[in-house]
């Protein structure tokens, strides 16, 4: 690309039109093309180098980075809002536990504490529902402990209310000790110990058991 001054008269310079000014050798266009002629091959080289190097660098795989300190942490092991837990009892029939809120404090204690809990299980004459304010579910022995009252409603309207009992979901039995009380259509009862077989509907009370039946009135607890 020559850089010496051009030899021409001043008049020849004014007569040139804009297009001729643009195309004059050594003008702005020539400089641009000259510059590009040098830069572009270098750009190709850099691009080729990048395309070889970047796949090898480890940074490439991380598509989504979760930072432990920034994410919302709960100190319990498990906290579920309106939880649903499904399992099978001895005869292989499903049961389900739904709870407004289920919390498992730590890994080594297999107890899930639940609020306004409903257990649904299948009895011979149809589904039954056990409702309670609170309950704690022992995962390994599939037993739900109820600190206070529960009520059981079976398919054909059979109802039972009891307090101080625990529900064994495997054998579908209610067991209670240390003072239980409750009511069934036939009457109201209280005793030291209790074992209710929900499928056979047998309420076995032990230890100064008391039962009160009022003929003439079928009380639905």
């Amino acid at each position: 690309m020559s850089t010496h001054r051009r030899i021409e008269t001043a008049e020849a310079k004014e007569l040139r039109s804009a297009r001729q000014h643009f195309a004059v050798p050594g003008g702005s266009h020539d400089k641009l093309v000259g510059f590009l002629g040098k830069v572009l091959p270098m750009g190709v080289g850099v691009l080729a180098a990048l395309m070889i190097i970047t796949p090898l660098s480890p940074r490439g795989e991380v598509s989504f980075l979760l930072d432990r300190n920034k994410v919302a942490m709960i100190d319990e092991r498990l906290r579920v809002e309106n939880a649903l837990y499904r399992g099978k009892d001895d005869e292989g029939r499903p049961f389900s536990l739904t709870a407004g809120e289920a919390v498992q404090r730590s890994g080594n204690e297999g107890i899930v504490r639940m609020q306004d809990l409903v257990a649904r299980l299948l009895l011979p004459e149809g589904p039954a529902r056990v409702g309670a304010e609170a309950g704690s579910y022992m995962i390994d022995d599939r037993q739900v402990d109820f600190p206070d009252e529960i009520n059981v409603t079976a398919a054909d309207g059979y109802r039972m209310a009891a307090s101080g009992v625990a529900l064994d979901l495997q054998t579908k039995k209610l067991v209670g000790s240390g003072g239980v009380s409750g009511a069934v259509p036939a009457g109201t009862f209280s005793a030291d110990r209790l074992e209710v077989d929900l499928s056979e509907r047998i309420v076995a009370l032990d230890g100064n058991a008391k039962l009160r039946m009022v003929p003439g009135k079928l009380r639905i607890p």
């Binding site: 059979y158 069934v184 259509p185 036939a186 009862f189 005793a191 056979e200 509907r201 047998i202 309420v203 076995a204 009370l205 032990d206 230890g207 100064n208 058991a209 008391k210 039962l211 009160r212 039946m213």
Partner: peptide
């Protein structure tokens, strides 16, 4: 009823 053991077979 008051007893040592009561079994209610509904």
């Amino acid at each position: 009823f008051d007893a040592g053991r009561i079994e209610l077979q509904d």
